[in-house]
């Protein structure tokens, strides 16, 4: 080493110059080692103090220690700066196309009839109805006889029925979910409030609005003081939950042997708000289900005294309701299960 050791101010300006040059963590580490490290220039300078005249040593030592503090601070600032710059650079670098499709697991979906059924049952659950199920392959006794549709009665012709090979007993594919009215009442004491979802079958040619294989929800409420007005109010609640809060409901007289009086329920058309359109055949109303007060014979045969108890029942077609809700015009699409159809129900309502 030639000449006199560098002064504190010389060291300072050199070190700060070099620090200003350091632009990444490695260079900063090198700088730290070269300047502030054990073998660094500052350490060297401190060790060289001993060579100074005694009276200068104290001042020089103080100056170098101040310098160390200053350089440590400068280093930390510089390091913060470099890190911040590096982060900024990385963030710029990581910019992506946010319109790329997301990275997902393959997504499935519930069948539209399932969604409609779940939604309907959910509404009725809130209204205090239990969900029960019954057999699809059902004795004619429950499908008809106990429902006030005796053998050889002309009303029986209304249900075009598929029959099952059997011996003495008549066995049907149930043409409606109504047999569960009787099975439920036979199995329990009043009060009764049940809904019965399930598949039903008719001997009926297929077209865009008719299926031989379809799904219903039956409803039954029996107690003292159950009235037709309760039926109207309950079904109005249901209609408003499913088709919108503004829906109006309307009864008209209809005939089902197991109810008296018997009615059909219509809602004002949700597509035109009742002013008339193609969906409602310009009538402003759309029929959604059949219902009525449980016939006294059905109550009595099921072990309920019709003088004391009254009740109502309804049966609605889930297929038809789903068609109405989504503007589907061919009932057969439910059972074709084309994925291009099913994918449209990935959006869920329940």
């Amino acid at each position: 080493m030639s000449g006199s050791p560098p002064t504190a101010s010389e060291l300072r300006s050199q070190a700060l110059d070099a620090l200003g040059q350091a632009s990444n963590q490695d260079e900063l580490s090198d700088w730290h080692r070269d300047v502030l490290g054990r073998q660094g220039s500052l350490g060297q300078a401190l060790r060289n103090i001993g060579q100074l005249p005694k009276e200068e040593r104290r001042d020089a030592g103080q100056a170098l220690n101040q310098l160390r503090q200053e350089l440590e601070t400068a280093f930390n600032d510089r390091q913060d700066q470099v890190r911040a710059d590096a982060l900024d650079a990385r963030l710029v670098d990581e910019r992506i196309d946010v319109t790329l499709p997301g990275r997902t697991q393959p997504m499935g979906g519930l069948h539209p009839l399932t969604q409609m059924q779940r939604e309907a049952l959910d509404v009725f659950a809130h209204l205090g109805f239990q969900t029960v199920e019954g057999p699809e392959v059902e004795y004619g006794y429950y499908s008809f006889d106990m429902l006030n549709i005796p053998k050889d009665h002309p009303a029986r012709d209304v249900w075009d029925t598929i029959f099952i090979d059997s011996g003495e007993k008549e066995i049907t594919l149930r043409p409606h979910t109504s047999p569960m009215q009787v099975r439920t009442m036979l199995a329990q004491d009043p009060p009764v409030r049940v809904v019965v979802p399930g598949r039903c079958y008719r001997y009926e040619a297929q077209d865009a609005t008719h299926e031989w294989h379809f799904q219903q929800i039956e409803g039954l409420a029996v107690d003292k003081h159950i009235t037709l007005a309760d039926l109207k109010g309950t079904l109005a609640e249901f209609a408003r939950q499913i088709f919108g809060a503004a829906r109006q409901v309307r009864f008209r007289c209809d005939y089902f042997p197991f109810v008296e009086p018997g009615v059909d329920l219509s809602i004002d058309c949700p597509f035109c708000d009742g002013s008339g359109c193609r969906v409602c055949s310009n009538s402003g109303w759309i029929e959604i289900l059949g219902a009525g007060m449980v016939h006294p014979n059905v109550l009595e045969w099921s072990g309920y005294d019709p003088e004391i108890y009254s009740g109502w029942a309804f049966g609605m077609g889930i297929d038809r309701l789903t068609m109405l809700r989504y503007g589907i015009n061919d009932i057969r699409s439910f059972y074709q299960n084309d994925l291009r159809f099913l994918r449209q129900f990935q959006r869920a309502r329940i």
Partner: peptide, 15 residues
């Protein structure tokens, strides 16, 4: 006329 039937909800015992 069925339009005269009011809309009410079931009262009485819960199930």
């Amino acid at each position: 006329g069925y339009e005269h039937v009011p809309e009410t909800l079931i009262t009485g015992t819960a199930v």
